[in-house]
Design a protein around this nucleic acid. Structure first.
Lengths: 339, 339
DNA sequence: CTGAAAGCGCTTACAG
DNA sequence: CTGAAAGCGCTTACAG
């Protein structure tokens, strides 16, 4: 493989000039630049990334950290971000925590990211108190997506989870429901992962505003997955009389809940209404009413936010963006049956 | 940040010895090694990846190329592969082609991967004739997942698509269906992407074996997505009398088809049976009968296959593995109604 | 088992 | 606008 001095020799210039010409720096005459470009093309020259990185101190890479790439929201965010990063010429290093606390620690505390990337995008990554120091200690631009995480000084792209949950619950209340269950994450979670806390809060707020006391019997924990939704419904039914409606903190839970309800002989929405948050690709297929959030948009925006300090040399940005959600009514919600 | 000579000084050895000790090379005495480890720990030393890569000629990174990370199969493969690569200390560069021919070209033809990774994993990446030269020209170990791609000399991890399609079609035939539609990719596709070709072939084989002539009117093209399945059903219905059963080449198509059928006033399976291939996370939720394929297993195996030549110095491996599939019957298939 | 020295292939002040 | 030289921070023969 040709190296930079091969190109320099062929073009009759120094390696410094080759480097400058190829990177499009302005301090190269047009004549020289075209001679260099031609020589490089002729030789099929590609600069060695490792050498450029070592000499230049920039990796042109970003780390994207997600809990589970197999979940709709994260895959959608990553897809949009990937596009933006590659268009800008950045490599994307994917880190899938997979729910492993060990992985989280390894990534955040062993300086695994040190000199490996120029920026970090944390998607719904739970952070403990001392994680913040590690992450900030990287001295890199960062962005968080989804309110699950918030790093002081980093911009955050997300929706208003409390409001989204309120919207969902109000939709059920508006249909006439009073016994409205809530399925979401573990409230006692020590990790500073606030998504499910916020969504539970929205549920409470909406109920209280309607004069309904939130019932602990109707508040169930679950993993944010289809299987989690199924298990939560089983638990709900075990506890006694089923609710007339369920607000699930995400569509995957909601879809798992719908399936479990049907399996238990309950009809959706005739016996139990179900609403989620997301607008998952398959929400339409199962007729799930949901509060839609713009996942791809969040990925795109987060990438753009991260690229700004990298590609220009403006100071650090701190523009937190809260994107709108939208109630999307389908067939899984209806008024409760008259007794 | 401390550099290798800081560690060397503190441990009272040369940088060469630090390098050897930290990488666990056997030619270091235990006493020296522990002194070095201690010094490194004390300083919080982390080797600069760029410098190691430049000096050592290895990047400890792999490229994973997928068509769309938002599709179930690809996300699942990537999740499993990511785990294996990170456990082995390799970085994962994600490339999501997003259906863009331009992206494919850029990745494969501009030596974008040159000196950037030590190995390449192509998941269902369509390849044209001259792509093979580019890919092989990288002189890197590679592996392909899913029969959509096959690179001479590279191991391939996949299922038998023809057989899986035959199994699906035979299930429908066994229930008594004769008018069995097929929904899959574009058969005239110039790209050497054989998945949908193989699955169509399985459909034909099963029909012919049962003495049924494949009907071109019942053979519809579609993107491998929910929306694609919906559009395909619309097309099918436009063509005339609906089939009594549909074999969809993947679960996402199948689920889109189910939704579109219901929307058109047809019941599944009473009026039309539907079967897919995959066993998508949500197949159970919608009661979809399918031919299950082990996606995570394919990702795991592909990663392990790729890591073998990287971590040991055996020669290139060429062990193609064909994993088994399994018919999983749920509620979307039933005998046709008697006329 | 260990070290001195060269080298990996670029980029970046510095000087002109 | 261009070049000579130093330097980025490691690893790898080579020698002992």
């Amino acid at each position: 493989m040709p190296r930079i001095d091969d190109v320099a020799r062929l073009a009759g210039v120094s390696t410094a000039t080759v480097s400058r010409a190829l990177r499009g720096l302005p301090t190269v005459s047009e004549a020289t630049r075209s001679r260099v470009l031609e020589a490089a093309a002729q030789l099929g020259y590609i600069a060695s990334p490792s050498a450029s990185r070592l000499a230049g101190g920039k990796t042109r890479s970003v780390a994207v950290v997600v809990p589970r790439i197999t979940r709709w929201f994260f895959a959608t965010v990553v897809e949009a971000a990937e596009d933006a990063f590659h268009q800008a010429g950045y490599d994307l290093l994917l880190y899938n925590l997979g729910g492993s606390e060990h992985e989280r620690q390894r990534l955040l505390h062993t300086s695994a990211l040190y000199k490996r990337v120029d920026a970090v995008m944390l998607v719904a990554t739970p952070l403990l108190a001392d994680d913040f120091a590690s992450v900030t200690g990287l001295k890199l631009p960062g962005v968080t997506v989804s309110s699950g995480t918030r790093v002081p000084g980093w911009p955050s792209i997300r929706i208003d989870d409390v409001a989204a949950a309120r919207t969902a619950t109000e939709h059920l209340i508006g249909l006439g429901h009073r016994r409205i269950a809530h399925i979401s994450g573990d409230p006692s979670d020590e990790l500073a992962f606030t998504t499910h806390i916020d969504r539970r809060q929205g549920w409470c707020q909406a109920l209280l505003a309607a004069g309904i006391e939130p019932d602990a019997q109707l508040d169930v924990e679950a993993e944010f997955t289809v299987a989690g939704g199924g298990r939560a419904v089983a638990e709900l039914l075990r506890r006694g009389a089923p609710p007339t409606a369920i607000f699930a903190a995400c569509d995957e839970i909601a879809m798992g809940a719908m399936a479990a309800l049907r399996q238990a002989g309950l009809r959706v929405p005739a016996d139990v209404s179900v609403i989620g948050i997301d607008d998952h690709d398959l929400a339409g297929v199962v007729g799930l009413t949901t509060v839609a959030q713009p996942a791809a948009e969040q990925g795109r925006l987060a990438a753009a936010t991260l690229l700004r300090p990298l590609t220009q040399d403006h100071g650090p940005v701190d523009d937190t963006v809260i994107l709108p959600t939208r109630l999307t009514v389908r067939e899984s919600t209806a008024p409760p049956r008259a007794h």
